[in-house]
Amino acid sequence: MQQLIDDLKSIPGVIGAYIYHPNEGIRSNNLPPLFKTERMRETAKSLVKITAAGRHSFHDLADTFLNFEESSILCRQLSGSNFVIAVCDPEINFNVLTMSLNLAMEDVNSRIAAHQFVQAENSPPSPAPATPPVTAPTMATPSPSAAAQPSPGNLKEELDVVGQTLAKFLGPMAKIVFDDVVENWSQGRTPTRQDFPALIDALCQEIADPEKEKSFRGMVREHIPFAF
């Protein structure tokens, strides 16, 4: 959750954000100190009321956006009754903001997926995931791994992690790039774990930025050591 609001804060025009749960109060916060906790809590209560009223009329409500003369607020209900609330400049582009929030949520989900993958590798399978994924109700960009075709052999989970990691660097284009590279990589054979370094090299060529390549390799290495 902290990662999500930190990603949000990095968007130009976003002053800060916080996560609110009706029963547990403010769970994460990166707004400047001038925003007092009690006021933020009261504001969140009002936003929850607005969202609840909105959902009563619109079952597919995605976001609620409030505009004031010198500021604006975006509120989105996440899974598990959590709400993410972002305080922004009044002139912020609503479409850009919601799309950025979707991408930030995908990023968080991919981290959760990668974390769960590592946990699954290191421990016996558990009946339910420890951390629920964060749902992105609007304009969600499909994760490249979700539709990664083909999914050679029994490497689907590893490919999911690589695809989700790639999405952090290439954004919406990641799906197209990833599918193409995996198709070439697996053509005429069934790849094994030993073939992963070649896949990572091919994806790095597509990233085409030395610093980003380095970060990408680092993030993949963190979860799939045998890829190197």
């Binding site: 619109f58 995605a62 976001d63 609620t64 505009n67 609503f94 109700p137």
Partner: peptide, 13 residues
């Protein structure tokens, strides 16, 4: 302590 409210949007997909 914001300046006056102007509008709100219930955004649907």
């Amino acid at each position: 302590g914001f300046m006056p409210f102007r509008h709100l949007v219930f955004a649907r997909e």
